[in-house]
Design a protein around this nucleic acid. Structure first.
Lengths: 228, 228
DNA sequence: CGGCCACTTGATCCGACTCAACCTGCGTGG
DNA sequence: CCACGCAGGTTGAGTCGGATCAAGTGGCCG
């Protein structure tokens, strides 16, 4: 699973710029404290599986990663999408709770968990940083539970587009790295319903679709009224 | 909000015994490192609100607490139920993400966040412990997203009953501290659907209801086949 | 230019929701 | 001690949002 082609240096990101948001600190950025190796994963390739040992911690250098749970009969729930700069696979305990796959061709930096543990053991700031990352994933999950439990299809898609836009710097131009099926499995819908909802938002002039993967937000206020 | 009758010593729990599970360590148990005050909350009383400052951390001494998000129009999603021994309100950042209310008359031990922070700053084991608690909440949320996004009504109820039973020590006798509406808002259903699902499980001999709040699990294997 | 994968759109179906009536157990006051 | 009131729960009838099944369409790559 981890036998991949190794690149010592990632070239320019394939998708988006590395995000310098709340999660992005010097901690995993430089090689001073922690050294990670770059790996390439092609689309739909598994990075780790649910139940596997948590030997590594991962960071998206470029591309996009989905983490999900799968039922025996194939029903899937994507918990989160991880974009450039995002850390993932930080499950405490010795097993991963979800499966991680590349949404598109992606470059991922892999850190040894033992190194991370060692860092945490003597560095309070780093420990707090990692705790904060877990807490942020929790916050995301809490918001997403409300979406999955109580929102309509249109509200879900509106919230999704706002979330993606926020991650892209609120430009109003959203590039979607994932397919309709991924969006559906993230939002707890079918791909047909996602498609219909896109069409409906477009026919109301709320968004404009330039191909399936490029969305222009035309009426942010309407989206926010729906998605919040 | 915090002006309650103070009890220096909690008498026997009103609901369930304190749980000595994975989250329960010496950390918040004794008064050596941290001192907390006992407060009583009556049914439906708010403990803290979404958006309030995170001044305290809470632990259920007896009773049950729900933490939830509310939409403007009243739609509600309960993220988790907290029973005896559970810590809650440990949101990082300076604001609570959810609202906490007593499901029934409950006793809660309240710790000053500053004390917790101070403890964490010089005690690695404690810091790790708290991080682990956040990680466990995250794990719960991940499982719950699958339930909310992809499971049928019967599967949701089955999973819920197994979860409640697991917390009560897998006795097969489940005492529900909450009303049908709470269960519905936890499972992303309506109370009618919850009630119908209970009836269906009962008519199939999977569970036996002794009043609305006392459930006997008769066919655990069937529940597990549905709920997993 | 051809083929296929992703997406859209249409028709029908169904599980859960809504609205409504009724039941039941419990606390309370006459 | 019984009758009443009522909150909580169950059950029923009808509706509806999103799922399913099924064509079509479009765009990209070989």
């Amino acid at each position: 699973m981890l036998i991949q082609t190794i690149r010592t240096n990632s070239s320019r990101p394939l998708f988006g710029e590395p995000q310098l948001g709340a999660f992005e600190t010097g901690l995993f950025a430089s090689t001073a404290e922690l050294s990670g190796l770059s790996f390439n994963y092609s689309r739909d390739e598994e990075i780790y599986g649910e139940g596997e040992h948590t030997e590594f911690v991962y960071k998206v250098a470029s591309g996009a990663v989905r983490t999900y749970k799968l039922m025996r009969d194939g029903r899937r729930q994507i918990g989160e999408f991880h974009l450039s700069g995002d850390l993932f696979g930080l499950d405490l305990g010795d097993r991963h709770h979800l499966t991680a796959e590349a949404v598109m061709d992606s470059t991922v930096i892999v850190f040894k968990r033992r190194q991370v543990e060692a860092l945490v053991a003597h560095n309070h700031a780093a420990a707090r940083e990692l705790w904060l990352m877990t807490a942020n994933h929790l916050k995301h999950a809490e918001d997403h539970m409300l979406l999955l439990g109580r929102k309509t299809a249109l509200e879900r898609l509106a919230a999704f587009l706002l979330e993606m836009d926020a991650r892209g710097g609120e430009t109003g131009l959203v590039e979607l790295p994932m397919l309709r099926r991924d969006i559906a499995d993230y939002l707890g819908l079918t791909l047909e319903t996602v498609s219909r909802s896109f069409s409906e938002l477009q026919s109301e002039g709320v968004v404009e679709l330039d191909g399936a993967r490029h969305v222009i937000l035309r009426k942010r206020a309407v989206l926010e009224a729906m998605g919040a």
